[in-house]
Amino acid sequence: MIEGKKILITGATGQVARPVAEALAKNNEVWCLGRFADVDAERELSDLGVRTWRWDMAGLAEDGLDGLADDFTHVMHSAAHRGDGIDFDASVEINAVGAGRLMTHCRRAEAFLYVSSGAVYAGQSPEHLVREDDPLGGQMPWLPTYPVSKIATEGAVRAFAVTLDLPTTIARLNVAYGPHSHGGMPILLFRRLLAGEPIEVPPRGQNLCSPIHTDDVVWQVPLLWKAATVPVQVINWAGDDAVGIQDMLTYMAELAGIEPRFASSEVYRATHAFDNTRRRALIGRCEVGWREGLRRTLRAHFPDLVKEAADAVQQ
Rank of each mutant, 00 (worst) to 15 (best):
A37M: 12
A37P: 00
D38P: 12
D40F: 13
A41H: 06
R43K: 15
E44A: 15
L45N: 00
L45E: 05
L45I: 05
L45A: 03
S46R: 15
S46G: 15
S46V: 11
L48T: 01
L48E: 10
L48A: 12
L48I: 00
G49K: 07
G49R: 02
G49A: 08
V50K: 03
T52L: 11
T52M: 06
T52V: 10
W53I: 02
W53R: 04
W53F: 15
W53H: 12
W53V: 09
W53M: 01
R54A: 09
W55T: 02
W55R: 05
W55E: 00
D56I: 06
M57D: 01
M57W: 12
M57Q: 12
A58E: 13
A58G: 11
A58N: 11
A61Y: 10
E62N: 14
E62A: 10
D63S: 11
L65Y: 10
L65G: 04
D66L: 10
G67L: 05
L68F: 01
A69C: 00
D70Q: 08
D70C: 04
D71R: 08
D71I: 03
D71E: 01
F72K: 03
F72R: 02
T73S: 13
T73N: 14
H74Y: 14
V75L: 08
M76D: 01
H77M: 06
H77Q: 13
H77C: 04
S78F: 12
S78A: 13
S78R: 08
A80D: 01
H81W: 15
H81V: 00
R82M: 15
R82W: 13
R82Y: 13
G83K: 13
G83T: 09
